[in-house]
Write a protein that binds this DNA or RNA. Structure first.
Length: 436
RNA sequence: GUGGGUAUAGCUCAGUGGUUAGAGUGUCGGGUUGUGGCCUCGAAGGCCGAGGGUUCAAGUCCCUCUACCCACCCCA
């Protein structure tokens, strides 16, 4: 008989029990912080109609939509992110949703990527969004939330970079780079800190940008680490530009609120060169990064005031962010954190032989009813094997239900750590192992 | 889409062109028919990624393909 070769699609993962313990621990931290910020849970289907997803992410993003072959394709696709389906929900249930609407969502998304480290075809996003608020106070709340989650996770050295779509557009405008070439220029500029000035200059000249314009681009977007100062300087140098002025006003307010709210300045930084690829961003944009390991961004987000309007005809402002769960866990593992995110203590009940199985199950049921995590070894075989199982699954205590002891109305309880055994009356097992 | 690397046991990997391809780990069993870890003995488990070529001889050298990994781009 031919064996079916066990395998999974590239870019997807299995999560074995040890992985899941860490994962659920991390999800728990994130979820708890979302809840303390007043966000409510939401979930949407894995699949969406194709036209729900298209026309929102930009060309590059759209090419990565995971189309399904259903009815020949272009009919149904796996969701690419959590943001757009949420916008669909806002439009679809307007009678049930109270604005401002704050929801969080922890679900998988799919992208037809070529996978590599930190980049998967199926991955979990942890989104938190505020819908219906135009004021940048909402964006500030999102940045505070990211900062707090990073703090909860214990990530040293994580920084959230903040920029504004309209600021970059204004900068490009001011040096005579038209809208058609602005996106390309933004992308090249964004690489400055990664690949260095020389490489970026080369790329600009190759793309036909004048050296003078590039110089101006560099000097305009220079930062000192003091966001307020940098913003007012940019404001002076970009005077007159409507887009830039609006952006600088927004960003100035965000950084003022962050300071007043008491957010540690080292955790948030103004990054006028930050470009974000998704097309739907219209205002402030954020990206959270760590320097080690090199894993791309841990979180990303921004304001997208136009997406809901695509479903309703009336623009509804919205802002939010997505945490990349797998990348966060990659950092966690890289730094050796939460390695002991172990299971709750477990008791294993072993029946010596088939005759004792019923009694073993009865004892287990009593323990379970009193809230003790209890496993019963349901297979036959030698005691050696049963104890080996207890050892390898990390059982803290083993209850041995055997004929000799049972005839005297007792069972043995073994502490797997110390190896010590004691006899306990059958009726008192629960008292002996139960929680106080 | 571009550039690198890897492919041998379930897993991690050794293996100078030359008998019957190995180790560790995991699985099963024995050493102990009432007790785990440590130790010890044994067993099962391989189309050496696929196809072609060179050679007396290929896991080993060459070519093609495929798959996976890494980097770039972009993203979480």
């Amino acid at each position: 008989m031919d064996i079916i070769k066990p395998r999974i699609m590239k870019g997807t993962r299995d999560f074995l029990p040890d992985d899941m313990r860490v994962r659920e621990h991390v999800i728990g931290i994130i979820k708890k912080r979302f809840e303390t910020y007043g966000f409510s849970p939401l979930a949407t289907p894995a699949m969406e109609y194709y036209d729900i997803l298209t026309g929102k992410y930009g060309d590059e993003g759209e090419g990565l939509i995971f189309d399904l072959a259903y009815k020949g394709g272009k009919e149904v696709a796996l969701k690419y992110d959590l943001t757009v389906p949420m916008c669909r929900v806002i439009a679809q249930y307007q009678d049930k949703i109270v604005m401002p609407f704050k929801r969080y969502q922890i679900q998988p998304v799919w992208r037809a990527e070529k996978p590599q480290r930190g980049r998967l075809r199926e991955f979990f996003q942890c989104d938190a969004d505020i819908v219906g608020v135009k004021d940048t106070a909402a964006d500030t709340e999102i940045i505070c939330l990211i900062t707090d989650v990073m703090g909860d996770l214990g990530f040293e050295g994580s920084v959230t970079l903040v920029n504004h779509r309209k600021l970059l557009a204004g900068v490009m405008e001011s040096i005579g780079i038209g809208e058609d070439r602005a996106a390309a220029a933004m992308r090249v500029l964004d690489k400055l800190d990664k690949v260095g000035e020389e490489a970026v200059r080369a790329e600009f000249s190759e793309a036909g940008f004048a050296a003078g314009a590039v110089d101006k681009l560099f000097s305009l977007t220079e930062t000192t680490g003091n966001a307020a100062k940098d913003l007012s300087r940019m404001g002076r140098e970009l005077s007159g530009g409507g887009l830039a002025a609006e952006a600088i006003g927004d960003l100035t307010k965000i950084f003022r609120l962050l300071a007043e709210a008491g957010i540690e300045p080292s955790r948030v930084s103004f990054a006028p060169r930050l470009a974000r690829g998704l097309a739907y961003y219209t205002g402030p944009v954020f990206e959270t990064v760590v320097t080690t390991p090199r894993i791309g961004s841990l979180a990303g987000g921004g304001r997208y005031d136009g997406v809901i309007g695509l479903f309703t005809g009336i623009d509804v402002p919205a802002t939010g962010m997505a945490l990349g769960l797998e990348r966060i866990i990659e950092v966690v593992n890289d730094r050796g954190m939460f390695a002991d995110a172990a299971a709750a203590e477990m008791v294993l009940v072993i029946a010596f032989g088939d005759a004792e199985m019923g009694q073993a199950m009865k004892i287990a049921h009593e323990l379970r009813r009193s809230g003790v995590n209890t496993d019963v070894y349901t297979d036959g075989g030698k005691l050696k094997k049963k104890f080996s199982y207890a050892d390898r699954t990390g059982a803290a205590k083993v209850v041995i239900v055997a004929p000799d002891e049972l005839s005297r109305g007792v069972v043995k309880i073994k502490d797997m750590k110390t190896g010590q055994e004691k006899e306990v009356e059958v009726s008192r097992v629960r008292d002996s192992l139960g929680r106080p």
